[in-house]
Design a protein around this nucleic acid. Structure first.
Lengths: 328, 328
DNA sequence: GTGAAAGCGCTAACAA
DNA sequence: TTGTTAGCGCTTTCAC
């Protein structure tokens, strides 16, 4: 349907090599022939076949972004940032959603290798050594984000542990001596990679360890709203809840609205991530801002360097920041 | 690095054709040879080269989703729904962001044709006949979403005009006789495709025409918050604002919180789309729900049929629904 | 400055 | 049942 190089060659009365020279701005061709070929190509709506080109060059100019969700604001923001970076470099990107299905993730990675992607940015949901080995065997430059795999893979993230430790300090300074940490993901099966979440829980635990005067617990149940309701009931002492993700905090705020609870009067609340949905709600949620746009940008740049075999840091840690709202 | 078919053939001591038969479950091969080839392939980490396959079959098993934004909840939800549908059919998808840059959109479409995508789902930002012609010349099955191009292209959307007309009825029944429509996008340059937005504005206009007792205007300025502030000031009569997108309404709610205005006491507010961010805010925004997941699903199914040359409706209109909140 | 030919890795049609 | 071969559309090398 669309013309190919041999076709243009016939139309122009020159050889395929000459057409190639004209089309791709290569030297060793007269201005006249070049102009002619270009005109004919244009007239016939010539579109190069990138697949054929990739087959011979070995470069597909495609990268893949593998995440387990898209509805979460966080991922959309990150993907957006990555796209900005790579588009200029001429890359297209596959977006792949694993839905926290480990098998699916494995399959997707295999498929991506079959499609000869030049690189992969992934928030992995697997973590087994077998998985790592498979990923390595694909021989595709890979950057892991948020969820760490092992030192065999480049990583972009933040010091989540320290971040939560500092979040706890904020509670402490505000006079809270009873703070629980809400982190349902930490409870998932052993074989799921929840690194980022677990590090956050560890930061909490480490603060609690160092402060025996503190009370509170790690809440790994998805019924955290009910648990909060019970904990708050008839209590005098200041009590706080630190969520490992803003989404939990948003749910809690919606819940307390319905229950007639007042934050921070009835309990203090803090989130994590700093998603942009927070801009629209009535309270300013205190949270730890994990600058996901920077993460995306860094991951893209790192991957670029890996692909180009250029010098690149193995890991990149972005700065987080505590943001004071009015829920503490 | 990774083995290819000729390599496996050598390793197995059979011909390339036989390897192909084994690998792709084709007939005319003994169980024994098949098993042997499969084992060797597995041992050597064989991964097919999909590019080479596509080159010969003429099918890339890839579709593209072209939108102008990703940060908007709406698009993320739609992409998610599309992915669900097409993944089962074995497709991968490129996500392309045009950022409302018309040239960029044109370039992206050309690049997609060069990559031999099997189909395209697009919320177009161009609308010129020249653009349509270019798109047609690519000979790639295409489904337009929300923003209509012309009858030359399949379309998935809703009757936005009727939707807004009905939205106005809701205002009317609540006693509002002064309602303005906030639709900044309607003001964009002539050559930008803002079909969905403009249809909404038309629904408003048509209601206003039929009801001379109504007052109000079409607000196309992005300073709509200030305009509201002035309009509301010292007014007795019930006044309402109908936004062509929930995002405007969310901004207005955030603004009125700051200004100490009370919705719906000081003014009535209605949005459009029903994005899921609404679940987290303190008010229940009255809105028109445009079921974007259905849109995504329908678009994917329609595209599938177009690609397969199967019977397919030319256009699909999904049902919208007015959702009563507490902002009227 | 231009043409001819090999080959990227695969599928598919035809021989053996 | 298996092997051989001709492309898919392109890049690249080498010869003219």
């Amino acid at each position: 349907m669309l013309p190919t190089i041999p076709e243009l060659a016939r139309l122009c009365g020159v050889s395929r090599g000459t057409v190639d020279r004209a089309l791709n701005g290569r030297p060793d061709i007269s201005d006249k022939t070049r102009a002619h070929v270009l005109k004919i190509a244009q007239q016939n709506g010539y579109v190069p076949n990138v697949l054929a080109r990739s087959l011979v060059t070995g470069k597909s100019n495609t990268i893949a972004i593998v995440v387990f969700d898209l509805r979460n604001r966080h991922f959309a923001q990150m993907i957006n940032a990555i796209q900005q970076s790579i588009f200029q470099a001429g890359y297209f990107s596959y977006i792949c959603i694993t839905e926290k299905d480990r098998k699916r993730e494995t399959q997707i990675l295999r498929d991506l290798a079959a499609r000869k992607v030049d690189g992969i940015i992934i928030i992995p949901i697997n973590k087994s050594p077998a998985f790592e080995e498979e990923l390595l065997k694909l021989h595709v430059p890979t950057v892991t984000v948020s969820n760490r795999l092992s030192s065999k893979f480049s990583y972009v993230g933040a010091d989540f542990r320290l971040a939560c430790y500092e979040g706890m300090q904020a509670f402490y300074e505000k006079g809270y001596r009873n703070v629980s940490f809400i982190c349902p993901c930490a409870d998932e099966q052993d074989d799921v990679n929840a690194y980022a979440q677990i590090q956050r829980a560890k930061g909490y635990a480490s603060f609690m360890n160092e402060h025996p005067e503190m009370h509170g617990s790690l809440i790994t149940s998805y019924d955290y709203c009910d648990i909060i309701l019970q904990s708050v009931h008839g209590r005098q002492e200041k009590i706080g809840f630190f969520c490992s993700s803003d989404y939990y905090a948003l749910n809690i705020l919606a819940f307390s609205r319905k229950q007639g609870l007042d934050v921070p009067k009835d309990f203090g609340l803090m989130g994590f991530d700093g998603i942009d949905t927070l801009d629209y709600i009535e309270k300013q949620l205190s949270t730890i801002v994990y600058p996901i746009e920077n993460v995306g940008k860094s991951a893209a740049e790192l991957l670029n360097r890996l692909i180009a075999n250029a010098d690149a840091p193995h890991d990149v840690f972005v700065d987080f920041a505590f943001r004071q709202g009015n829920t503490l």
